[in-house]
Design a protein around this nucleic acid. Structure first.
Lengths: 99, 99
DNA sequence: AGATTAATTCGAAGAAAATCGAACTATCGT
DNA sequence: ACGATAGTTCGATTTTCTTCGAATTAATCT
């Protein structure tokens, strides 16, 4: 069984509807807002009233839609907002959503 | 039985996540793009590969989220993009999504 | 090696959404 | 009044999401 497969879309694979869908959930939008404000962060720091497996699900949706990128750093996974890619493909979108 | 109840949110009731959700569907986004390009239009002019009842469902989602406003004009219902309200509450959002 | 921590995957259950046909309402034209 | 047109509502089915506990992987620490 595979352990961890990123499966993040490339910049040119980004889909607007998939991104809008990912951001249409309060929990996920909250995560994205926090990433925008604080920068790279491990999954564990997000204070969400949900068990880990649920949080993990939401991170997956964010990754698969290309909103967030995740890299491994020792024991944890560090998440970042894919600002550059998002701005390149959909200028102004992130700014409008995060304001 | 009620015949037709708009139930459109006021400007201040607009919810970002509800709007993003409404626009996260290809069919609905297509409708919105066309409304943006052509202005007010009846439901019937949209060439969508779906039966009327499905189209009607998508219009309802657009109305209930506040993306579209519908008024009755004789035999048909005319739909418009709620540009002013959307721009007021979420500046730049529509522009970024429609470009 | 064993324990701890970080986060994922799996699987099942429940909730929410999409889809479509059929029936309905309202308006218009003849 | 009848028929056609525009679009909705209803109800059932299917599909897709969310949620969560339990098991799992991987890294770190003692």
């Amino acid at each position: 069984m595979p352990v961890f497969l990123p499966k993040e879309p490339t910049r040119s694979q980004l889909s607007l509807t998939a991104i809008l869908y990912a951001l249409s959930d309060e929990v996920r939008l909250g995560i994205v807002r926090q990433l925008a404000a604080e920068g790279e962060q491990p999954c564990g720091v997000f204070e969400v009233d949900r068990p880990k497996s649920s949080l993990s699900h939401h991170f997956r949706v964010l990754r698969e839609s290309g909103v967030v990128s995740t890299r491994k750093e020792g024991k944890n996974l560090l998440n970042t907002l894919r600002r550059k890619d998002l701005d390149a493909r959909f200028p102004g979108l992130l700014k409008a959503i995060l304001r």
